[in-house]
Nucleic acid binder design. Structure first.
Lengths: 325, 325
DNA sequence: CTCATAAATGCTCAGTTTGAGTATAAGGGA
DNA sequence: TCCCTTATACTCAAACTGAGCATTTATGAG
């Protein structure tokens, strides 16, 4: 990094993972960036006139995607060198502060070719709602081979342990929060396109169906961080409601939670939990029938924030993967 | 901010909250900074030769305090303008990435006048181990007066709600994780010395026993963030063990958890929890008696990481505040 | 109009987990 | 030896969980 000395000033970027949930899918707002139109997260520089980081973020997200952010939370700050090879990152900011934002409706996405994509487009192995994802056996096999090819016995064991933990093999069970850990393993093992690209190779890398669609620079890593954080947070904080319309049915709520967490839940127990915790209250209205008996429309009950220390939806998965009533 | 324009480069700082636990007290490593020798967190600039933020941090912490960090986790990134009034912050970095580090032993703290302080020195109202802290009534009364003096009915109600939530009044109960929320209320209400100072006043502000000792710039805010984060984390991740010696008794472990969380726990249930979760294993040795019958010495059982999704010590407080066997 | 289908809701029930104690055991010191 | 202190074992009722079964109320096909 030419010219940069101790305590050097560096350019600072902001990136946003903007999440919505529509049609039972978790969506993330993406744009097409660069000459190769690779998918990317809305990003921009921190500008001097912004009083705070968060205000800066809100500002240009509104300009860039005409999306008005509600709930915003800082995710993580990514330093430069641990991001990508320097020769790739020229022009990229030295430091990126990433934010997670939740918005209520997936408006058609305004300017700059911004579109809403299911986040499972980038992480197909994270969606267990229809049972164990089909691409997992292949992924696991490739990871095993990578571990087996480790230089040194100790490293091999370390890798195998990490793989076992992250993918729920041998003993451990699938933990839906370990999104970043899984992505990082795939990256290190060279199984995602970004790995080949960052190494300077021009080969597009193994962008087959099994390992999902690549994103610009380290945006997929940022997205993985966001998904993991959100999956954890819904368990002890009522953040799902940021994604729901003002009134909704319990099944809609359940489907949203399932979309985010990637697992199926037991319906009756889910309702019991939601009601026991006092997370919702009646609106009096009924839904315009979604196929069967009309459902009560409920709304989020704000007062719960005052009552419970950790009002969330600790989601207890239903029968492993299968269809649940 | 003169000369700063869109996407401007800015200097980046790193701050570290370095935590240890000794003698049943939670300690934080502080230095004396500036001409007025105000207490501060170890901090330094991000330097160009550091490959990652975390490496940069480890590096100068070792140089500055001769403390070798084990567990390190990124805490939060604080933007400039939401920190302090610009006229105060000259020379201070524009952006500070704060880290939380846990170290095993409180070595006597090396250079630069670094010393270990109980963190309740800065947050006396956070220590409920001996029952409800004596300074709380006064704090609550002052906060109430601040809320009552709000310009506008809506704002008044908002403030009262925030106070109620943060301090566990009316309905809500004390939530030990809301350290930052409580500090921010005190700051906004002008009850901590930093508030008066940041407003440009030269008055030292109300630095009485009730509202704790002030720190440099926004370091007390950073510390509050760290304490809250750590209090939350011990519940679902076995991070306490980063603070324990290789072998310890169950009571030592309990006292450490109590020190961090600031509440007393029910002894028998605590042991049951720790053992059921498989968090520890026998060393075979016995303790050199801490006053009564000798206790088994145990050690952290690493394998638990592979077995449980969230191995932590969800601390269920004992009888409100009082002494517990 | 009647029946099959799809949800929404109600309720049960056994197995765990929690919160709070009671009862003993085992050192050290007066 | 008696007392004080801490370690450990056990108990027990209440609350919480995980899995299902059973009903109710719409909609759409015959």
């Amino acid at each position: 990094m030419p010219g940069a000395r101790g305590g050097a000033a560096r350019s600072i970027g902001l990136s946003a993972v903007i999440v919505a949930a529509t049609g039972h899918e978790p969506r993330v707002l993406t744009i097409r960036a660069g000459q190769d139109f690779v998918e990317a997260l809305p990003s921009g520089p921190l500008e001097a006139e912004h009083r705070t980081l968060e205000i800066g973020l809100r500002n240009w997200v509104e300009r860039q995607t005409s999306e008005r952010l509600g709930y915003v939370e800082q995710l993580y700050t990514f330093g430069d060198r641990d991001r990508v090879a320097p020769e790739i990152a020229d022009g990229a900011p030295a430091l990126v502060v990433a934010y997670l934002a939740l918005v209520r409706e997936a408006a058609p996405a305004g300017a700059a070719g911004a579109t809403w994509q299911s986040w499972y487009r980038y992480f197909p192995w994270e969606d267990w709602r229809g049972g164990r994802p089909a691409q997992l056996p292949l992924i696991e096999e490739r990871l095993s081979r990578w571990a087996a090819a480790s230089p040194g016995e100790a490293l091999r064991r370390l890798r195998e342990e990490r793989i076992g933990l992250a993918f729920g093999l041998g003993g451990a069970s699938w933990n839906e929060e370990l999104v970043l850990e899984r992505y990082e393993l795939l990256y290190e093992a060279g199984l995602v396109a970004e790995a080949a690209r960052d190494l300077g190779g021009t080969t597009p890398g193994p962008e087959d169906a099994a390992t999902g669609v690549a994103m610009a620079v380290d945006h997929r890593r940022i997205l993985a961080t966001a998904i993991g954080r959100l999956r954890g947070k819904i368990k002890y904080r009522p953040v799902v409601f940021e994604l729901m319309p003002p009134a909704f049915t319990l099944l809609q709520l359940q489907r949203t939670v399932e979309a985010l967490s990637g697992v199926r839940l037991h319906k009756q127990n889910f309702r019991r939990l939601v009601e026991q915790q006092g997370l919702v209250e009646e609106t009096g209205a009924m839904s315009a029938a979604t196929g069967g008996r009309p459902a009560r429309l409920v709304r989020f009950r704000r007062e719960v924030l005052l009552e419970r220390p950790a009002p969330g939806l600790r989601l207890r998965a239903g029968r492993r993967g299968g269809a649940i009533s």
